[in-house]
């Protein structure tokens, strides 16, 4: 008897749902749907809400009964939790899809080919859409974010390095404070810049003030992400650096930080995503302009959030609403790009 005659059992996955299991749960959901449909049409209940609630209740009940009959009461109770957890995730997803869909459907009406070529210096929000664009807003947002990044990246990185490299006695309280700082309401950041810089010193609103306010919101995000990233660098590298005679400064600057380069880029991107749509401090301290202004140190500066805010609140016509949604669309696209690149970078690393 040769070895080829021995039957090797095919590897199975008995814990996974089999095809008939999947079919049965699918049928349960379908029958619950049909039941809901009948119920809504027979009883006075009506509307999307009634469909939604009744559908979920009937799925829970049907699934409970099915499990009760085919298995036992424990399995039946278990099925209630699994249906409820699916309800939780569905309720989380509905707003996401609704928001993204709304922005794309309403936003594209306000787009035109010259939108990134014109500013609103000669147009009011109620003018025809082709009359103006959001050049000033996009440039303003870029400048605000860039200047904020120049300040907050070094500070955030130093905080991260303190928490991972120095590991001093203050590590715990500082971690605590960074966390607390990430909860500072954005309007308070604006008020702080007003009270600390604008009223006592400059007495004028400008892009730089906006950047300073955004810095306060950006530092905790960068610091926390930088800490996470630096923590991932293996201690072997640090020890190797020190063993080769490097000082701690050289080890950190030439080994640890370069090794964490892509992670730190992620930190920057997440920091930008955090502040790019921040509105409340922008409204308080940048002044908000309709004209392109490339000097962050002088004169009021426009930005995407301000553009959207102004279009929605001062307009009221169809054009202004379309403008607002178009601005929102551009802002959302920026966030998508930032988020996608952050995921791409961190995905490539692991």
């Amino acid at each position: 008897m040769s070895t080829t005659d021995i039957k090797i059992p095919a590897p199975g996955k008995p814990w996974q749902a089999s095809r008939s299991d999947k079919l049965k749960s699918f049928l349960t959901v379908i029958s619950a749907g049909i039941f809901t449909f009948i119920l809504v049409n027979v009883t006075p209940l009506k509307g999307k809400l009634a469909y939604f609630i009744l559908f979920f209740i009937s799925v829970i009940v049907f699934e409970y009964i099915r499990q009760r009959i085919t298995r036992d009461s424990q399995a039946a109770k278990d099925s209630v939790l699994s249906t409820l957890s699916i309800l939780g995730i569905v309720l989380t997803l509905i707003p996401i899809f609704s928001i993204v869909l709304t922005v794309f459907v309403k936003g594209y009406k306000g787009l035109h080919w010259q939108i990134l070529n014109k500013d609103m210096a000669l147009a009011s929000v109620n003018d025809p859409i082709e009359a103006g664009g959001l050049l000033h807003a996009v440039l303003g947002t870029f400048l605000l974010v860039f200047v904020a990044l120049l300040i907050s990246f070094p500070v955030g990185l130093l905080t991260g390095i303190y928490l991972t490299e120095i590991r001093g006695t203050l590590s715990r309280p500082i971690r605590f404070l960074v966390q607390a700082m990430s909860g500072v309401p954005s309007i308070v950041a604006g008020l702080f810049i007003l009270s600390a810089v604008i009223y006592p010193i400059t007495n004028s609103l400008s892009g730089l003030m906006g950047s300073l306010a955004l810095t306060i919101l950006m530092i905790p995000t960068i610091a926390r992400t930088a800490e996470e990233v630096l923590k991932l660098i293996p201690d072997d590298l640090r020890e190797a650096g020190v063993a080769l005679g490097a000082t701690q400064w050289r080890t950190v600057a030439m080994v640890v930080v370069p090794a964490a380069k892509s992670g730190l880029l992620t930190a920057v991107i997440l920091g930008i995503a955090r502040i790019i749509g921040e509105t409340a401090p922008i409204l308080l301290v940048t002044g908000g302009a309709d004209k392109t202004n490339l000097n962050p140190f002088e004169g009021s500066m426009g930005s995407l959030p301000f553009y959207i805010w102004k279009a929605f609140l001062t307009g009221g016509t169809e054009q202004s609403i379309a403008r607002g949604w178009a601005g929102m669309l551009i802002l959302l696209i920026f966030i998508f790009i930032l988020f996608g690149s952050a995921r791409y970078i961190s995905g490539r690393r692991s």
């Binding site: 500070v155 905080t159 390095i161 303190y162 607390a180 700082m181 500072v184 000082t247 701690q248």
Partner: peptide, 30 residues
């Protein structure tokens, strides 16, 4: 630690204190 490390530690600690300083300044100026 060497001089360079002392400076390094000083600068990093200073940066690490930023959150404390900023929170303190917010409370102070408001």
């Amino acid at each position: 630690p060497r001089r360079s490390d002392q400076i390094f530690r000083f600068v990093v600690t200073l940066g690490g204190m930023s959150s404390l300083v900023i929170l303190g300044l917010i409370a102070l100026f408001l």
